[in-house]
Design a binder for these strands. Structure first.
Lengths: 215, 215
DNA sequence: TAGATTGTTAATCGATTAACAATC
DNA sequence: TAGATTGTTAATCGATTAACAATC
């Protein structure tokens, strides 16, 4: 909302960067909007508009230079220095997410995990140190953490979010199956497993209904 | 697209049902649109429209009857009989999702998991039987599976999706960090961890910028 | 009845799509 | 130049919001 770029746009830009990285790995030096669009499941005009938003210009003949565009997206999307993230709720899902990010993005690292269970405190899981909830504010401030991931169960999610926000976090990814009530200045991306599966099942069923009707 | 109800609407309806279930557990018998709206992070008008979509009518005095609305949502959202789902990619994330759904929705069950690794075949993880990829088509058809979850790594995701679709699956939840190329008749819900964290980090950073500017 | 909420229509908003001159 | 793609503006589309008569 502040700088006029929507969350959807940011999502697509994040995707373009990864697609461009695979192109670069294949030795491709330039790409056209329709090529990126086909890979990203977007339209060429959308790609052009998104790339304009990151402040990069392509050429009518060569299209977009892969190397330079990746760099431009980095300048647009990344913080100047590597960014530290927190995770709250060291269950199965929390551990899976820590593992997923362990060796992935060098400029986006989950550095601290928190849990109510004292048995988990003090361990290092997937390169990430585990703390009790009472240390949250101190660790978040000390590490300069501004974003967090909530993998706590439904009952603990609101409390986890409140503590993170109180400590200064302004961006959250919420995997708990409950919506969070937070100030509008805090960005929340909801990743609701139950909803996503119910959606898929609903539309899968309708797909079949459609076929039957079409007969 | 077919029956005019958007995926967003389905997502909200799925959420209302869970909120209503907690209300029922607390002994609440009726709810107004503004109450549901406050809980779901939606507007009252949105709630009214969504509930109309499920074919239920409230009363101007009592609002919506919790029990009856839950039932109406079930008729709208659920298949007539319990629905079987498949999961492809038995890694950390796949196991976490199987655990999450093990005892949750009785009418939405992950009944079969698939993996390329022969070491995983034949086991039962979180109540879910594991098969090799070569058995996918047979098991999906035999179990009447119409929806699937992809937790395979990026390299294997497209192949997993293709095999599921070839076997008759028409609804997917994709956790792999690549977009899938599939026929338009197949519904895909993308749950991209990397994108979601990059979004949160981006807007968290912008939030701080805003504060600094406001000073 | 009076009052609050409902279903439903009209106005608004934002994003996507289509179109086109400018560019190499 | 001719041709394809770019940046950018206008038209379209869909969803959200506002408004309001109907209802209990």
């Amino acid at each position: 909302m502040p700088g006029s770029v929507s969350a959807k746009t940011i999502g697509r830009i994040s995707l373009y960067r990864r697609l461009l990285a695979t192109l670069r790995a294949e030795g491709v030096q330039s790409a056209f909007s329709h090529e990126l669009a086909a890979m990203a499941g977007a339209t060429p005009a959308q790609v052009r508009r998104d790339i304009m938003a990151v402040g990069y210009s392509g050429s009518p003949v060569r299209g977009y230079e892969v190397d330079a565009l990746i760099e431009a997206i980095g300048r647009f999307l990344d913080a100047p220095e590597p960014e530290a993230l927190a995770l709250v709720g060291i269950g199965n899902l929390g551990r899976a997410i820590m593992a997923f990010f362990e060796a992935r993005r060098p400029n986006l690292r989950i550095v601290a995990a928190f849990d109510r269970d004292p048995a988990k405190v003090g361990r290092v899981i997937h390169g990430c140190r585990c703390y009790g909830m009472e240390s949250l504010e101190e660790v978040v401030e000390c590490e300069g953490i501004r974003s967090g991931v909530i993998t706590a169960p439904a009952e603990g999610a609101q409390e986890a979010a409140d503590k993170l926000v109180a400590a200064g976090v302004t961006g959250l990814v919420n995997f708990a199956p409950v919506p969070l009530r937070l100030p509008e200045s805090v960005f929340v991306e909801n990743m609701d497993l139950t909803t996503s599966l119910e959606k898929a099942a609903y539309f899968a069923r309708r797909g079949e209904v459609r076929k039957e009707v079409a007969r």
